[in-house]
Nucleic acid binder design. Sequence first.
DNA 1: AGGCAGGTTCTTA
DNA 2: TAAGAACCTGCC
Length: 272
Amino acid sequence: MIIHINDDFDLKKIADSGQCFRFNEVDAGLFSVTAQDKHLLIKELEKDTYELDCSEQEYDTFWKGYFDLDLDYSAIRSRIDPEGDHYLFEASEFGRGIRILRQDPWEMLISFIISQRKNIPAIKASIEKLCALAGERVYEDELCGAIYSFPTPERLAAPKMEELSSCSLGYRDKYVHQAALDVASGAVDLEAFKKLDDEALMQELLKLFGVGVKVANCEILFGYHRLDAFPRDVWINRVLEDHYPGGFNFDAYAPYNGIMQQYLFFFGRLSG
DNA sequence: AGGCAGGTTCTTA
DNA sequence: TAAGAACCTGCC
């Protein structure tokens, strides 16, 4: 099907933004997107016009929400005062087209537990191995190869630690294993966490083995789509130290500081 | 060959 | 409560 998008929307920037790990350019301008048990091929045909290999119903019920197309990102971007915060303005121009995807809390939790002390290619490789090990094949073609769903908590709880180790998780294997057991058993109810406010959500996430402040913030921002969350990683800390000695003005951008974080992260990481 | 990569846990004072 | 070490693995 064909759709038109007027607002900020840049597939390549989203793929490289670091918020998702199964969003890849498989051919010139053609992107393979896998989320939970769904797969999508999407390509920009011309400016603002995209071709998707899904039904209209699947677009309406899933992908439209996944791409967060009901939120006006250009309006949020326009809140940045070029003179008040020139660095953020420059970062937002550089990152224009990035959106915060509405991803699944379970998938994000495991993904960001895995992400600690790993670079992005290594994170992606681990996640793909995990999906091949415990997920189900949902799609296949020549460009993408075989695509596996992200394993459900139940399926991820099944493999023994030795099998998980084959996914290059390193010392994180025990974190992943424990998270799967906790969620599969119902001891941790990620769905119920949606009712909590940001602060209570943070407190619950910090109870999980292998989840610290940074991973919890990523989960809050990317898994629960709480757009004010502001994960601080090595890149962001570098940006804050170098460009915000007096502190970042969080008050000016609430409740969208997470979007600003994405611009700063993307700009800081890719512009040197 | 040694250091480092989107941190967190464990240990020690 | 706070700093420092240890931690898997892959890649330069």
